[in-house]
């Protein structure tokens, strides 16, 4: 039997609720003096990170260790793919050592799906695939909002501002937040927020696209700023960071006018003065620190939940399905 966390796509509301509930329990563990529990003793987690990442890798590593799992980290520079080995061969080699969970970060959209298709007995967790999904980030963002609002976020208006077209964080959040019954507004220039994103075949009918920052932010409960990557200039998506910031930089001033009540999320690392101003990032409405704490709890919850399904060992879960 197997279960994977490949994306928010395919998950049910109940799955998200279970993970959020489990994460709240995990959060309590992190507040104890002794932060380690024996839940995953004897289990092995491999972190296969084919793309540089500090935050997510550290978070998964620490999550595994706090659960007493054996954790192995394999990074791009250490892996054989540098020597020309294919991703699938690398993963098959790792899987032959019988890890319970393989956490994968890869620059190609769908890479974890490829592994899930060919690995017969390992749970695959998507820790970010290309410009597709980053489910643990969306789940930790939901957890952050849950802790802030005191309940699972629903009925809220969430504005996601920035390079949605290339953002896996945005995709997973759009899916998770709309699944939970929130309205999602995507805000940015037509080059980075194409109108196809609002097509029902893309993310369903709870999503709208706005090219004006003020219109997109108006009355929002939550504003999520996305990191803008400098490379976007090379394929003409933006003329310059300055020109982008002038139109879409989220500042305290803009928020006071359009969304005075909004809290602000950012998946990090931040480009201060580009997509977000320091007065917002460090201000009262910022939930950035809470996001980092939630990250650890949520990743512990993911590992525990997957290990439990795998440990149950009897019922057959659906191919490539979510948790």
């Amino acid at each position: 039997m197997r279960a994977h966390l490949l994306g928010i796509e395919g998950m049910r509301v109940e799955d998200i609720h279970t993970l959020l509930t489990n994460a709240m329990t995990m959060h309590e563990v992190s507040e104890r003096v002794i932060k380690k529990v024996p839940t995953l003793r004897g289990r092995t987690v491999i972190n296969l990170f084919m793309e540089p990442s500090t935050r997510t890798r550290t978070s998964f590593e620490l999550a595994g260790k706090r659960l007493s799992a054996d954790v192995v980290n394999i990074s791009e520079s250490a892996s054989s793919t540098k020597k020309g080995e294919s991703l699938l061969d690398t993963a098959i080699t790792l899987a032959s050592m019988s890890p319970d969970i393989l956490v994968v970060r890869h620059q190609a959209s769908g890479a974890p799906h490829l592994l899930a298709r060919y690995l017969s007995s390992t749970c695959v967790v998507n820790a970010g695939d290309g410009t597709h999904e980053h489910p643990s980030q969306a789940l930790l963002d939901c957890l952050t909002l849950m802790r802030h609002f005191g309940e699972i976020p629903t009925g809220k208006t969430v504005a996601i501002v920035g390079d949605v077209a290339h953002s896996r964080v945005a995709r997973s959040n759009i899916l998770a937040l709309s699944l939970l019954g929130n309205k999602v507004r995507l805000v940015g220039p037509p080059t980075l927020v194409p109108s196809d994103l609002a097509h029902p075949r893309c993310f369903g009918n709870r999503v709208t696209v706005h090219h004006s920052l003020g219109e997109g932010l108006k009355g929002a409960d939550v504003v999520m700023c996305l990191r803008l990557q400098r490379e976007r200039m090379t394929r003409f998506f933006i003329p310059s960071l300055e020109e982008y910031a002038r139109h879409y930089g989220v500042s305290e001033k803009v928020l006071r006018i359009h969304a005075p009540e909004a809290v602000v999320l950012h998946p990090g690392p931040m480009n201060r003065g580009v997509e977000i101003d320091s007065d917002v990032a460090d201000g009262e409405r910022s939930l950035v620190t809470l996001q980092v704490q939630s990250g650890l709890a949520m990743r512990m919850a993911i590992l525990v939940t997957l290990a439990a399904i795998r440990g149950a060992g009897t019922s057959e879960s659906s191919e490539g399905g979510a948790i």
Partner: peptide, 18 residues
Amino acid sequence: SHGGAMNESPLSYRLGIP
């Protein structure tokens, strides 16, 4: 079609495939 691998559409945007 720079770097593209499937039809550009709502589906390609969902899959994150250029």
